Simulated scan of single mutants.
Amino acid sequence: MSGFQTQAAYNPAPAVEGDFASTNPRTTVLAAAGALVCGALGAAIGRFAWLSYNQLDSDSAPAVVNTFGSGPVAGFIHREQQGLMEVYLQESTMLVPAGFPVTVFNEGDFWVKNSGPTPAQYDMKVYANYADGTASAAPTGTPNGATTSAGSIAAATNAFTGAIVGNVLTVSAVGAGTIYPGTTISGVNVAAGTKIVSQLSGTPGGIGTYSVSIPGQNVAAGTAIAGTYGVLSVGGVVTGVFGVGDTVTGAGIAATTMITQQLTGPAGGAGTYAVDVNTVVNAAALTSATNVETKWRVRSFAQPGELMKITSWPQG
């Protein structure tokens, strides 16, 4: 096997990604008994994490942790030897398996790998990649992203029959359109502003179950439900890669517009994407952010691929 040690260094590595970088105070994400647990793909140690409404804890708060997501991060996954090897002859792992309990830190000092293409310098802001939770460093207000010279957003709708218990929507029939994550839904007894978070089971975009953003609901079976979302068209000159979780900005676009699913075209390239706002935007230059700025700051220089110290405390 190729993973066994074949050489020794005079000076040991300062740490392993995910380790604490100091004994300064640290805090964890508040969760009820039995939460938080890793999502279906597990959670990677030494990465930033997001919370999901696929399950709720006893406080009706999101109970699932993923090291991918969208919007602001919930926190960071510290290394405490919680990875578990599940693959035959596997030599090492940094993955906590699906369903296992995991602690998410929202304050503290940690060692993390600089996964960006440029060196991390002291006091730069730390950015979390939406796709895998990896960290990079850059000046404040400079997320990575992609651009299109001829992007537009069209309003789209769907209609279906279903029921909601807690935070789970059960769709029994689809009358029109396709159901995508990010769809804002309305109907009798549906809480205002409720959005579909993800599909849990069933036919993709059709009959099945879905998690919704507002828990504690009780919508009777057979309720007629209407949904609205947007379809982003990416065309013209495209630079970079568009992806799920990206925040789209440009003239006429709401600040919170987010890509929830790619609909057509090559992965990340020219094509169409579902977004969670149905604002109509005519052809224009649009930009998407592929990572999000966190509150953490860099506290040591690091070349790409090297470990860097990060802190959530303003003075480090």
Rank of each mutant, 00 (worst) to 15 (best):
I185L: 10
N11W: 13
Q55G: 12
F160Q: 00
P215T: 10
G230R: 02
G34P: 05
A173K: 07
V126S: 12
T287R: 12
R297E: 04
N24F: 13
A9G: 04
V102I: 15
T170P: 11
G162H: 01
P62Y: 11
A21P: 06
G166H: 07
L30E: 13
M1Y: 07
M1G: 15
D246N: 15
Y53S: 15
G240H: 03
T157N: 12
T194G: 06
P12V: 08
F105T: 00
T294G: 05
G145V: 07
T6K: 14
A255D: 14
D109I: 10
T147V: 13
G305Q: 05
A31S: 13
S213K: 08
N114E: 08
T170C: 13
A131L: 12
I225Q: 02
N189L: 13
A283E: 15
N106F: 11
T203P: 07
G252F: 08
A120L: 13
T249P: 02
G230A: 04
E91V: 05
A31Q: 10
S149R: 00
G243D: 12
Q261A: 15
G245Q: 12
C38G: 04
T140Q: 14
T140R: 12
D246S: 12
I196Q: 02
S92P: 01
L286K: 00
N54K: 14
S233H: 01
N129Q: 15
Q303P: 01
G83F: 08
T93F: 02
T67P: 10
G236E: 00
V174Y: 04
V126K: 00
C38M: 02
A192E: 14
N24H: 09
A61G: 09
A138K: 03
N167A: 15
N167Q: 15
L89Q: 13
L30C: 01
V234L: 04
G265P: 04
F301D: 10
A137S: 09
L41V: 07
Q7P: 01
W296T: 03
A156Q: 08
T239F: 10
F242R: 00
A120F: 07
G222L: 07
P143M: 11
V171Q: 05
D132A: 07
G133V: 02
L30D: 14
I196G: 08
S186V: 14
F301P: 00
I214C: 04
I310D: 02
G108W: 10
G46P: 01
G227T: 04
T183V: 13
T223S: 11
V174S: 03
